[in-house]
Amino acid sequence: MNDNQTAPITPAKTKSEKQVIEINELRKGFGPQEVLKNVSLQLFNGENLVVLGKSGSGKSVLIKCIVSLLKPEHGTINVLGENVSELTSDGLGEMRKKIGFLFQSGALYDSMTVKQNLEFPLRRIKKDLTQQEIDEKVIEVLENVGLADALNKMPSQLSGGMRKRISLARTIVVDPMIMLYDEPTTGLDPVTSDEISSLINDVQKKYKTSSIIITHDIECARTTANRVIMLHDGEVYQEGELEKFEKSTDPLIKSFFK
């Protein structure tokens, strides 16, 4: 996968019409502040959907509602045909096994080494694996993100970009069907941002994932997007192919695509 980082990056065009996530009329607020007002969207099988928007527009809240870290006040979220709000705690656990979530901060477990961080979800989700199979899988995903030599390091010994890569490795180690990226390139230099963006494409190709990428980094969107949705004031402002956004004369969209 390292070879692909230097190659020209083109998003995979593997979209089929099968929906893996369907959100209808989603509303979520915190106290008097209404963050998501009426959001409806679909994620199709195999596509990279980029959700753009200013800070505070409700992008992160949207994907936290998908994995039920936050409970929506109104609306339905269907993931792989199941209504998330109707799932029991066991059902929710099973659904989460199929979803990988890359947190903005990386969220690596500070008290564990990189190897232990990767083993953590693997031991709990794929319980039938032997220690040898676990070791092989850990090495494989670390090689995929180009950090095989970081196996025994602690998270505190890693740079911001490395933490993001390890966090991505921890997410893909359990072979998720859906990936949710929460601002994957925030706080990184342009070179590392490009590397992470190309990794997102590589993950899509290799693991055949469908992804929602939350970002306000246009370069990341250009690199990874098959389709783009822009959120503004808690609502879907514009939806379509990247070219449509690039050519738009709307002042708000233009301010993003300068």
């Binding site: 870290l69 989460r96 979803i99 947190f103 903005q104 969220a107 500070d110």
Partner: peptide, 17 residues
């Protein structure tokens, strides 16, 4: 507390733990 702030508890929850 710091695990909560750095979303480690959320990460644990999302990984079915």
């Amino acid at each position: 507390g710091s695990m909560k702030v750095t979303e480690q508890i959320d990460a644990m929850e999302v990984s079915s733990t």
